[in-house]
Design a protein around this nucleic acid. Structure first.
Length: 191
DNA sequence: ATCTCGATTGGCT
DNA sequence: GCCAATCGAGATG
């Protein structure tokens, strides 16, 4: 079962933290690519200087004001970045997926990334989208109902992961709060 | 039509 | 650690 609407329509920082350890599934043709989310960042709306929803809506970011659980994909520095929207309608928010531990479909990921080492496949927001073949085509997908792209609970993991936090990476201006979350000690965290 | 910018990456020192 | 290449969106003319 995919995580439901209620999971996403909560405080963005909580969603970002709770996505750690969850399983991300991407179906490409008949093959499944699978990985565990190990690093995320939370982005709010007005008052968050680093957020794309800090000012006016655009064709791409308007989705942040809609319901939670929808994919938001855009390009930065020549790389596609993948987010999932949070909160309900009219409250903007999204979680950026920054790091994933590859679990299934490694050969396809290696081909798309042109790298061999597992820790080089998805240990960064742009690396992850390249490894999973995610691009503009995957913008606006409802991950609570889609077969192509979904997020599920991790049945194999009983204890909750040990989480560390830091300031968000690469942003020109950040809030005082630490809004980057990652699983302590995991090799697929970006840095 | 052209310009600017960025939630990045990888190669080099 | 530094820095250049990256490329599409949004703004501007």
């Amino acid at each position: 079962m995919s995580l439901n609407r209620e999971f996403y329509e909560r405080d963005t920082a909580k969603v970002a933290r709770d996505l750690l350890g969850k399983i991300l599934l991407r179906k490409d043709d008949d093959e499944f690519l699978k990985g565990m989310i190990v690093e995320t960042e939370a982005y709010f709306g007005e008052g968050d200087p680093a957020s794309r929803a800090k000012e006016n809506k655009t064709k791409i970011n308007e989705i942040m004001w809609e319901k939670g659980g929808i994919t938001l994909v855009y390009m930065v520095h020549g790389h596609w970045l993948f987010n999932i929207t949070t909160e309900g309608k009219d409250i903007p928010g999204a979680v950026l997926i920054r790091g994933v531990e590859p679990l299934q479909g490694l050969e396809k990921m290696r081909g798309w990334r042109n790298k061999e080492e597992i820790k080089e496949l998805a240990s960064g927001p742009g690396k992850f989208t390249q490894a999973f073949g995610i691009s503009k085509d995957h913008h606006g997908i409802d991950v609570t109902t889609s077969n192509e792209l979904s997020v599920k609970d991790n049945k194999n993991r009983k204890n909750t992961p040990r989480v560390e936090t830091s300031h968000r990476i690469g942003v020109t201006e950040d809030l005082d709060r630490e809004l980057r979350f990652y699983i302590s000690g995991n090799k697929n965290v970006s840095r």
